[in-house]
Amino acid sequence: MLRHDGRCACGVVYSVSEDVFDFLGNSDYYWGEMPRTEMEQFLSEAQRTGWRHAARVLVYPKRPDLQQYFEDPRRTAWVAEIPLPAHPVVADLGAGWGTIGFQLAASGAQVWLVEAVRERVELLRLRRAQDNLTDAKIVRASFMDAPLASGAFDLVVLNGVLEWAGIADKSITPVEAQLRLLRNAAAALRVGGFVYVGIENRYGWPQLRGEIDHSGLPFTSLLPRRIATLVLRFSRNALSSHTGGDSPRQTTYRTYTYTLAGYSRLFRHAGLRIRRALMLAPTYNLPKLIAPLDHTPTIARAMRAGLIVRGSRLARALASMPSSLLAAVARTLAPSFGFVLERME
């Protein structure tokens, strides 16, 4: 889709270096799972000994939670709910370390990984070479302005991305930024294609229990957004310290998440219709229970199965609640959602 002559059909000029299409040139913005210096050490070790070995030696001892995040095949378990062709063309926007994109590539998809941070792009390049997934394309660009050709993709993945749109484009309101991202994704779809969105529930059970929100602080998603902004103004640079990024102090709450009804409205305004709404637990990043939210008896059955596997007395007591109540709990307090969206014609 992108030629090696350095000019996109959209008119933007880009460079091609080591088989990476670079639309950002000298931009040096950093954002990541760990501080930049540690990321650089990791990259240098990954170059020498392989990314998996480097992650085991340098990353996982400090951050054991990242092992599943970077390597667990269940990160793409939601693919079971999307009727894709055998070799779909996929865009993974905000690809991060590329776990989702490369897992899809390994199963036969032609994947375009779009990522803005230079260090992450370097890791994607190493990972592509070392895992022998040379058909995967890497594009260095912001997910907000990803150079996606119209009508070219069977699937556009926005996993853990939509909530960051308000930070990535501060020239407009967070809702407008999210709509812009969704409309770009929708425009890139082939007829019969899908956008997949994996994202937290604003009032999810983990949020109620005090899990850190995208702001870097707990409980902010639960507050009215103006109050959340006030809280941010009086806090230290929570977002940046949480993510190891270079981002300036956040003074406005812009990482919007919604309830199920809120997402439905947002998607409708973006010209997208929900084909499937799923509860993903415990998180959309590692879904171990995937259940359809539109069918009360099935979601209740799924909740029971999930609770029984936990085995505790409380879980068994919850499992004995009536189906309608269990389904209502799932829709209201699901930790996160997965949405399979299609274009409204």
């Binding site: 378990a77 709910e81 879904p287 171990k288 099935t298 979601i299 799924a302």
Partner: peptide, 8 residues
């Protein structure tokens, strides 16, 4: 059929 998935 309506499907739910477990991977535990």
């Amino acid at each position: 059929l309506h499907w739910f998935w477990l991977a535990r």
